[in-house]
Structure formats: structure tokens, C-alpha cells
Design a binder for these strands. Sequence first.
DNA 1: TTCATGTGTAAGAAAAATCTTACACATCGG
DNA 2: CCGATGTGTAAGATTTTTCTTACACATGAA
Lengths: 114, 114
Amino acid sequence: MKQTSDAPPSGEELLRILAALANPHRMRILATLWANGRNYISQLAREIGISRPLLHLHLNKLEEAGLVRSEMELSEDGKALNYFEVTPFEVLLHPHVIEQAAQSLPPENRKEDV
Amino acid sequence: MKQTSDAPPSGEELLRILAALANPHRMRILATLWANGRNYISQLAREIGISRPLLHLHLNKLEEAGLVRSEMELSEDGKALNYFEVTPFEVLLHPHVIEQAAQSLPPENRKEDV
DNA sequence: TTCATGTGTAAGAAAAATCTTACACATCGG
DNA sequence: CCGATGTGTAAGATTTTTCTTACACATGAA
């Protein structure tokens, strides 16, 4: 019944989450989905006021980070609509959390590695 | 005695913080400073294994986001050392926090604005 | 003076992220 | 069939971020 507190994210996971959130469009997208509930791409694009391909790209980044999830659904008139909704998340940003996450990062180019 | 819980960051603040943390080098820099305590640039560059100008650049980003602070200090032998240390921070990443932060973002290019 | 240490920053290359435009395909309804 | 709606994605321009290299300046010790 894992619910009370999420396991601390790995370095890569945390990086993906941070990069996904560190953009005004994606921030607004997530905020809109959270405030107004699930919605499909074309409609959401109109509401936010950005092009559909651009929204598509941003939603992909959010989904890869696990912050939203999508589901195909048939509308009454037979259109295939791709609905997105926020995946509830809760990540604490604290120096100690960063320290832990950094330990699982690949050992990066040291001077000796050359 | 503001200490118990920080005020929720504005959209711009949060964006700066997220962008600052969303980078493996800067994550490692912060982690090292937190684990080993304050240190000056040249020494930290050697420990982490990146060039000093590059570290300088990353430390600037971290400082602009308010995640580290710096202080000039004279060493025993008279060198001016720029010491950096982590500014303790605590930011909760949650859909509702994002929603609040997004409200203080500039109204971005709508289709109508053209 | 010269060398080793520290500081800072500017210029340009290189890489990554962002955004637009255009195309392709599907279904329903007139 | 055709137009309006939905889906996806690829190609290329543009912008931003990242990184290297090089320079300039300061101090203490040999």
C-alpha cells in the first residue's frame, strides 16, 4: 500500500523530472491539467494558446518524466482523442535529497579519464 | 523567526531553481558542497574534475537561483579565495505547487497577441 | 623577476532545446 | 466526394545552453 511517502528518485529520474518542469509552457500545461482536469491535445492546445505540434512535444517530455499519463479514447462521434491527465507526484527538493540522487549519476568525465 | 516552512516560490523563482538543479554537473556540485562543506572554486574544480571556468559558470547559475552563496576570504598566504556553500532550501514539488507558481508567470504569447 | 597560486571574464565552437511548417492518415457528416 | 475534426511525426530554422580556450590581473615565495 505504498502511498504515504514516495521513494526518493534516482539521479536520472530526478533530472528528467526537473528538466520537464523547468519550462514555462510545461509548467502552465501541468497547471491547466491539474486545475481543469483531463483533456485531449487539440482542445488543450486551443485553451493554452500554443500550436498542437508544440504541445505534443511538451506533453511527451512531461510523460517521459512520469508527470502526466495519456489514454486513447473514442469520442461519441468516433474521433480518437488522446486524453492527458496529471499523475499525482510529490518530490521534496532538499540538499540532502540532491546529494543522494547525485550518487546514482554516471561518474562523468574526470581529467584522469582522458 | 521564519523557519518552519518556506513561502511557496513564485513562478519565476521556481523556474530558476528547477533549471539550476536540472543539470548533472550542478547536481554534483551541490551534492559535493553539501557533503564536504564549504570550499573555494579552484579546489572544488579539482575535486569534481571539471575546468575552473566551467565550474564558475555553473556556480553562478546555482547562486542566481539562491541555492548557494559565496564569500570572499583571505587565505593565510594572502590569496583571495572565493568560498561557496549551500544555502539550505526546501521546496516541495507537487501539482498544486506548480499550479500556484504558474499563476504568477507572464501571460505568454497567445494566438490573439499576434 | 619568475613561478605557482588564486581570482574573473570574454569570444567562439559545439551541442541541445525549442518552435514552426508541412505532410500523412483516419473518421464523421453534409 | 469534400470539409471539419482528430491523430502523429519529420525536417529545418532559431534560440539557448553548455563548454573550451585564451586573456588579464593579483599575491606570496623562491
